[in-house]
């Protein structure tokens, strides 16, 4: 099934869907969380363990 077969062009369909399907405008802040253990005990160890793999990935 495509839009053209039914007398509507795809631009009109996009517009119609945007109009009917529009999400409510009600923003909610989602602050980024701190996850990396910068300065925490042991973080150096984990970084050191993963560094060779990360280096390989950046080359690949």
């Amino acid at each position: 099934m495509n839009a053209g077969e039914n007398g509507f062009d795809s631009g009109q369909i996009v517009q119609l869907v945007a109009q009917i399907g529009a999400l409510p405008d009600a923003p909610l802040a989602m602050p980024k969380q701190r996850l990396e253990p910068v300065g925490e005990v042991g973080s150096g160890l984990i970084s050191a363990l993963l560094r060779p793999f990360a280096a390989r990935a950046s080359r690949g």
């Binding site: 999400l23 409510p24 923003p27 909610l28 802040a29 989602m30």
Partner: peptide
């Protein structure tokens, strides 16, 4: 979705 419409 949450940042656009979550408060609803």
């Amino acid at each position: 979705f949450i940042t656009r419409s979550g408060a609803a």
